[in-house]
Computed example of a mutant assay.
Amino acid sequence: MTKDNYQISKKRIAPFYILISIILMWFIGIQLFGPDERDAGAKPENIIYSGTFTWEKPDGSSEKISVPGHYDVSPEERMRMISIFHTLRLTNSFPMS
């Protein structure tokens, strides 16, 4: 065998290098000019969950709890938690006809 068998044509390798160059330029461009992970105008109240968590106990009672937290639950018992989102009431500002 000679080295000629392992030579790759420049016509075949050029599209590969062009593609890799385009991907590299796209990646660098997105890193420099793309959007951040978090919007600078984001308000903390929109990021932090403002709902409540309720623990429904096996005996039928319920208790508001904070998450994260530590609670006495035996390994055989299931801890059923319900999350309640605060709802926004909108009023109709247009006259009904």
Rank of each mutant, 00 (worst) to 15 (best):
S21P: 02
S97I: 07
P44G: 02
P15L: 09
I18G: 05
I23L: 14
R38S: 05
K3T: 06
S83N: 06
R80D: 14
V67R: 00
S74L: 12
W26G: 12
S50T: 08
K10D: 15
I22V: 15
S93T: 14
Q7A: 08
T87F: 04
V67Q: 00
I65S: 02
I20M: 11
R38P: 00
K3C: 03
S74W: 07
R80L: 15
I82Y: 05
Y49R: 09
H86P: 07
F53W: 13
A42T: 14
M1S: 13
S50I: 00
W55I: 07
R78Y: 14
G51A: 05
L88T: 12
I30D: 07
Q7S: 04
E77L: 00
S50E: 04
I22G: 13
M25A: 13
S62D: 12
G29H: 09
D4P: 00
T91A: 05
I65K: 06
F16L: 15
W55Y: 15
S62M: 06
I47Y: 05
K57Q: 13
M25P: 00
L90E: 03
D72Y: 06
M25E: 00
N92T: 10
A14L: 15
A42L: 13
S66T: 07
V73D: 07
N46C: 09
F94A: 09
W26Y: 14
I47E: 11
F27D: 04
M79R: 03
G29E: 04
D59V: 02
E37T: 09
S74Y: 10
D4N: 04
S62V: 07
F33V: 09
S93L: 13
Q31F: 05
D72V: 09
V67D: 00
M79N: 02
E63S: 02
I82K: 13
S9W: 02
G34L: 06
T87I: 07
P35I: 01
I22M: 14
G41R: 01
S61Q: 10
I23F: 11
M79K: 08
P58S: 12
R78L: 14
M96R: 09
I22F: 15
Y6G: 03
W26P: 00
E76S: 06
K43G: 03
S66G: 01
E37P: 06
Y49G: 08
Y17T: 08
M96D: 12
D59M: 02
I65C: 01
F85T: 09
F94M: 10
F27V: 09
